[in-house]
Design a protein around this nucleic acid. Structure first.
Lengths: 107, 107
DNA sequence: AAACAGTATAACCATATTGTTATTTACTTT
DNA sequence: AAAGTAAATAACAATATGGTTATACTGTTT
């Protein structure tokens, strides 16, 4: 995964409310109105968090009557974990900088 | 790891510049003046990114003469990965909410 | 001791983020 | 069709973020 895309996903996870939402969704699909009393924030605030998570592909939504149920995209979360474990190797870029004399030698 | 602490660390990683710095540090310890030409931002901007990463425990610093070399705290990064893989189980909290009639039953 | 090099901090600015309330949209129930 | 419930969007406010330039601090070199 590209740096920008991975950073975006980590940023989506990097908010306590959203991270806890992800944890909740690991147990059970939830709709917005259930999350409101849990977090003590307004319904639009919850909606915006879900929208942010959806943008990064971390959740999927399914309408059931009046409710929109959000479910965890487990594949996506796994993908993020894997990308974080295998960050691109930038040694080649560093070698090029070294040739340009931009790296410090202080040993 | 607590939600707030993990969210803080993920937020630190959730910036393209900082994420790339982490990737660079996987190859080689770097000092601030090396990172400046790589990212094309000012020296104070790099310093602030390093300070943010240090606050979350992702990097350690070592002074070598004039330079401050930053190294990756691999244990910390691994800890974050593990925490992200094993988010707290909130099923008990959900059960309590269910007893309070706060969860939607729509099946 | 004076000048220099690298880094950190301070003060500031523009934009992003995260919340709010008000309103609109989508669907259900009466 | 009218009223009710859930969710999304709009408009806004306060704070956070990520950059800048100027300056202070730390250590080195002359």
């Amino acid at each position: 995964m590209e740096f920008d895309q991975l950073a975006d996903a980590l940023k989506a996870l990097g908010d306590p409310t959203r991270l806890k939402i992800i944890a909740l969704l690991q147990t059970r699909d939830c709709c917005v109105c259930e999350l409101v009393p849990i977090f003590g924030i307004s319904q639009p605030a919850v909606s915006k968090h879900m929208s942010r998570l959806k943008t990064s592909g971390l959740v999927k939504e399914t309408r059931k009557g009046m409710w929109v149920f959000y479910s965890l995209n487990r594949d996506r979360l796994e993908e993020i974990r894997i990308s974080l474990t295998n960050l691109p190797d930038l040694s080649e870029e560093l070698r090029q900088l070294e040739q340009q004399g931009l790296l410090v030698q202080c040993d």
